[in-house]
Design a binder for these strands. Structure first.
Lengths: 343, 343
DNA sequence: TTGTACGCGTTATCAT
DNA sequence: ATGATAACGCGTACAA
């Protein structure tokens, strides 16, 4: 037997196909008894409707896609959970999809819109510098969540966005270090061609130094190389090891992600040094792991739950045409813990 | 305009639909020139074929699905990468899909098979105690990867599996602790109704105690409660905090996952104690984070890359009918690091 | 080498 | 309340 179809069920129940369809989709115009009878046989024979056929036919699927950039990006997992709740709450379905670092998220989105008849899209993470005409093909409302630096040339009316002020928050962190006596502060940052959060966080660093009349020392700027896994433990470790072997003086390492900061800590420990006695370390993100690390990580916490909630809200506001696209910037929070100290 | 279809492209190019189809799918019977011309216009107008329609028509899609249990399960991310390589290498497409802890992975699989015309399935993680008749509906070869304790009543010829010997490896870890002078060893384990790796790892613990003539102290067995996020940092932290407040004596904590072990460490630090001076801590999995933690984690390393590779291999062997289903058990490795010491 | 026509499994529209 | 039938967009057998 080939897989069962709606026809088979219809025959078995002695009803028409459309009646079965109505039973499946909870349509109003159906006798509760026949509906129950049909559902019973469906369950009995384990019939499963073919989603491809449904998507093909359906006009609107009441589903919204979340495209996450980077598979091992644990930073987003709590956001995703919140989003799913919000989406389900509104009787929509969430379609979660991962996008590799080298994949083009807009291309993926374009495909998905066709395949799944999406009502909307949430882009989570990534860089997002896309041509305007490509974005225009996306005839579906979308919101950029925790994605920095969208191209200024693209009219901001075409989408919503949620983020923190990466430059300002980065500034705050570095400024805190400076206020606590640090002058030679190394930064583990994104590769030079980064056009997104990496760039912004580096700018914040430079700005803080500048305003405190500290000269930027290029020796202390450690960008990730393209061959490294981006924002990873290992990259933080490698960059810091390299840094330590330079013998350039510094008292603090500021990493633009918590994972890199943890990598940095390990590199410092491996050289027989202590944190925060010998070096202070600061991160960015406010991940759970940062709180559990030992020493616990001084970092910038992004209010991920709130941001996730707001992301869904913004999208649904646009969907229900209650509102036009908006851009919300959330305040982050300086979390001072054990890994950094006053000197 | 409604979205573009293959018809539109055909009209624009002045050719028939099937010619366009041939161009898209790299069929042999087509003039290279027309093919190029068609591809050019496809690119120009940004036409994207509708996947639902394709899947509906296609008999076999040369795609295999990977179903991952638990979204934040970073343990699997490196495995997934390897699998993707292996799958692509064989000109198949990987469809990655997450399954919530409360979802039924077989139901999801059943759906996906219909929707995507899968050639095969890989189940990653989870518990996997499913009724035989449900499994029988899965008319597609599948392999269970790092999933413990499949129901003995299901003929092992219906699927392949890859795993470590959870009980034995767990035994080894606990035995190592005992050999190093620990007698009162607490365990952070799965909830009592767990039928899978959690159970096996607990069995290994008990067996090690028994063989060393140490009585099992129920006070030292700390199962996760159902309301906890399973195998998480927080659960490890909570259980250990509770344990410490009991004032039952112990010198070592063995957690059945690295994340829980890290949570345990934090709980110990928060009580002002030291690792490994006051308490030894051991984990299970061999995650990257365990190596980066401070102190670095003594743990059981599963050879995830090899296992991932073998998973794909086994599946493809069955697909190409070169082989029947097999069950491979990989040796894990005791990784002795800083978090545990001899007393 | 190319085009026509049918059918994949479903939902939506229209009768009844 | 229910059933017949026309799409949905594509792949493919078959004809040309």
């Amino acid at each position: 037997m080939g897989e069962m179809t709606i026809k088979d069920i219809a025959k078995m129940c002695g009803v028409g196909i459309s009646t079965v369809s109505r039973a499946i989709n909870n349509h109003p115009d159906i006798n509760p008894e026949t509906k129950e009878m049909i559902n019973a046989t469906i369950k009995e024979y384990g019939y499963i409707p073919n989603n491809s056929a449904r998507n093909l036919k359906r006009t609107e699927a009441k589903s919204i896609a979340v495209l996450v950039k980077g598979i091992s990006n644990i930073f987003f997992s709590s956001m995703i959970k919140v989003m799913e709740e919000e989406i389900k709450k509104r009787k929509y379905t969430m379609v979660l999809h991962h996008v590799e670092f080298n994949e083009d998220e807009v291309d993926v989105a374009l495909q998905l819109v066709k395949e799944k008849r999406l009502a909307g899209i949430i882009f989570l993470g990534g860089y997002f510098h896309h041509s305007e005409d490509k974005l225009k093909k996306l005839h579906v409302p979308f919101v950029l969540s925790t994605i920095g630096c969208p191209p200024e040339n693209f009219s901001k009316k075409g989408y919503s966005s949620i983020s923190v002020d990466d430059e300002q928050e980065s500034y705050n962190m570095v400024n805190w270090l400076i206020q606590n006596g640090h002058k030679n502060i190394a930064i583990l940052c994104a590769s030079p061609d980064d056009e997104s959060i990496g760039k912004l966080r580096l700018e914040g660093y430079k700005k803080a130094l500048l305003e405190n009349k500290i000269e930027v020392n290029l020796e202390l700027i450690m960008p990730m190389r393209p061959d490294m896994e981006q924002y990873s433990l290992q990259s933080g470790y490698d960059l810091t090891t390299q840094l330590l072997e330079k013998n350039t003086e510094f008292t603090a390492v500021y990493a633009i992600s918590d994972m890199m900061a943890i990598g940095a800590c390990k590199a410092i420990f491996d050289k027989g040094k202590k944190i925060p006695e010998d070096y202070s370390v600061a991160g960015f993100d406010g991940t759970e792991m940062g709180a559990f690390y030992h020493p616990s990580l001084t970092t910038v916490r992004q209010p991920v739950e709130d941001m996730a909630k707001a992301t869904a809200q913004l999208l649904f506001e646009v969907l229900s045409e209650k509102s036009v696209h908006k851009h919300r910037i959330f305040p982050a929070e300086l979390v001072i813990r054990e890994s950094a100290k006053k000197i």
